[in-house]
């Protein structure tokens, strides 16, 4: 039984990644958004080095959060519209596992590229070089939490025609702790303070999100499908 669950997990992950790579143009959207938002800051506020290095962590984190938020609508929408979601809901394999696989696929095509791009933006924002590693670490832990929490919002609104705005409203309050601790970690590293405590808290968020978000999202999907 366990073997088939993990086989189903990998198969679902592979399917979702395959679907993403068949529609490559959509993959670039959150990434371009991320770069644009961050690069507008020096232009719109001030190119002053002092200011930018202070704001860098926050700006990059906010941009990553918004980019994730933008990409959420696609998480279940296509599967809902063509009926694939129905087939997942009534499959004997646990829906929890399907949601986890789909969310992991979502993170691999949105969160991970954001993470990999962040050092470049860090340079642009005059982020101190020794804080770059901490920024990446905080995003590495934080962006999966954003994807997982986002999955709940996406699952709740997938049956509605105007899901987009509602997802933001539902999900943003839950994103705020992640944002606070994410930027906090980087800020502490910049100031030379110990930041491992913040990282531990973020890891706790991640553990909680992996355990609970898929359960909530599967319950929400069952409701959305039964409309």
């Amino acid at each position: 039984m366990n073997a088939t669950v993990s086989a189903a997990f990998t198969a679902q992950l592979r399917r979702d990644l395959l679907l993403s790579f068949r529609r490559r143009q959509d993959l670039a959207n959150p990434l371009i958004f991320f770069v644009i938002v961050v690069s507008l800051f020096p232009l719109g506020v001030t190119p002053d080095k002092e200011f930018l290095s202070q704001a860098a962590a926050g700006v990059i984190w906010v941009a990553a959060l918004l980019a994730t938020l933008l990409s959420l609508d696609g998480l279940f929408r296509a599967d809902y519209e063509d009926g694939a979601l129905e087939q997942m809901v009534i499959a004997p394999q646990p829906l929890f596992m399907v949601v986890l696989a789909k969310t992991l696929a979502h993170w691999l095509v949105t969160g991970l590229p954001l993470l990999l791009l962040s050092p470049v933006l860090g340079v642009m924002m005059f982020l101190p070089a020794d804080a770059t590693g901490v920024l990446m670490l905080s995003l590495l832990i934080g962006t999966p939490v954003l994807s997982l929490i986002g999955a709940i919002g996406a699952a709740l609104t997938v049956g509605l025609r105007v899901g987009g705005v509602l997802v933001s409203l539902l999900v943003l309050p839950l994103y705020i702790p992640v944002l606070i601790f994410g930027t906090g970690t980087v800020q502490m590293a910049i100031n030379g303070q110990p930041w491992t405590g913040h990282v531990a808290l973020m890891l706790a968020f991640l553990a909680l999100a992996i355990g609970l978000a898929p359960i909530a999202a599967s319950a929400a999907l069952r409701i959305s499908v039964s409309n």
């Binding site: 063509d82 009926g83 694939a84």
Partner: peptide, 9 residues
């Protein structure tokens, strides 16, 4: 009615 067949697979 909706079969869940994906266009891009």
């Amino acid at each position: 009615h909706k079969t869940g067949v994906k266009d891009s697979l």
